[in-house]
């Protein structure tokens, strides 16, 4: 029974993620229409056989833009977890491994950052960097740092007393090698869970920033931006919000399910 449930999460989660990766790959080679070409006389047409998700306020094909939007989504998500992952693992690793005052300093800064509700920090940072895909990703990456650093730190704290670490130290392996070659692989699953959650949060945060007029800017098709644009046509064309809203929700759901499944797999008590 236990196994059965984990499999459902894992199956659903990875299935959704794989489907989106499929869409991503397709979008590089094929979209039914050019994503930016406008056809203003045919704006805001309901879903039909020619435009399966309808057309937007410029008469652009929404389905094509959803496909292309997957590129933006993955770019933002991957950049965010790359930035958040790099600095989070570095800071958390050093803090956990070295301990002492370094640990104190790093963790106090992380505490201070975590005291800001994420969206406030994102707003402040995007205001500093300016909107756009890269800038938004940098801001979201910075926001992801503290939680990833915490996970990494506690992993390192647990592992640094382990026998293999003591052994490596005895034979004179350099500290950075112990940290990244020996300890890191042992806690990689925890970090992967933290990263996939960070990816999911980045998707939602991008949508929220877009709603506030920041975030990814046109003409790059972004689901968050499309959802925001669709919002102004909600009463007459409610179907317009379904495609971008559904895309975000599904991808985020997939990521959450996957991270839950991974966490359950790792948890020794549930074995």
């Amino acid at each position: 029974m236990q196994k059965h449930k984990k499999n459902i999460n894992l199956l659903l989660g990875s299935g959704i993620l794989l489907a989106f990766i499929g869409i991503l790959i397709v979008s590089f080679f094929y979209t039914p229409y050019d994503v930016n070409s406008m056809d203003i006389p045919n704006k805001l047409k309901e879903p039909s056989t020619t435009h399966i998700f309808g057309t937007d306020e410029f008469g652009r094909d929404i389905f094509s833009r959803i496909l292309k939007g997957s590129q933006t989504a993955f770019l933002v998500g991957i950049l965010t977890i790359a930035i958040g992952g790099f600095f989070g693992v570095l800071i958390g690793g050093i803090a956990g491994y070295a301990g002492g005052w370094l640990d104190e300093v790093f963790m106090r800064i992380m505490d201070a950052l975590m005291a800001f509700p994420g969206i406030i920090l994102a707003l402040m940072l995007v205001a500093v960097f300016g909107p756009g895909i890269i800038n938004t990703s940098i801001a979201l990456g910075i926001i992801a740092v503290p939680s990833i650093a915490r996970v990494t730190r506690s992993g390192f704290v647990q592992q640094k007393e382990a026998e293999y670490v003591t052994a490596a130290k005895l034979i004179g392996v350099k500290n950075y090698k112990i940290m990244f070659k020996h300890i890191l692989p042992n806690i990689s699953s925890q970090i992967i869970v933290a990263l996939s959650i960070a990816f999911a949060i980045a998707m939602l945060a991008e949508a929220a920033l877009s709603y506030l007029g920041l975030g990814v800017q046109p003409p790059d098709p972004s689901w968050g931006r499309m959802l925001k644009d669709a919002q102004s046509y909600l009463i007459n064309s409610p179907w317009y919000t379904y495609a971008p809203g559904g895309a975000i929700t599904l991808l985020v759901l997939g990521l959450y399910l996957l991270s839950n499944a991974l966490r359950d797999l790792m948890d020794p008590r549930s074995k």
Partner: peptide, 29 residues
């Protein structure tokens, strides 16, 4: 791990994945 447990956790996950402003707009509408 009974069916209701599994369904519950999937449904609540869905609530987590919806962008909040969209959810708000749908509630309004």
């Amino acid at each position: 791990n009974k069916a209701s447990d599994v369904v519950l956790s999937s449904v609540t996950q869905l609530g987590m994945a919806v962008p909040s402003f969209w959810l708000g707009m749908i509630f309004i509408l």
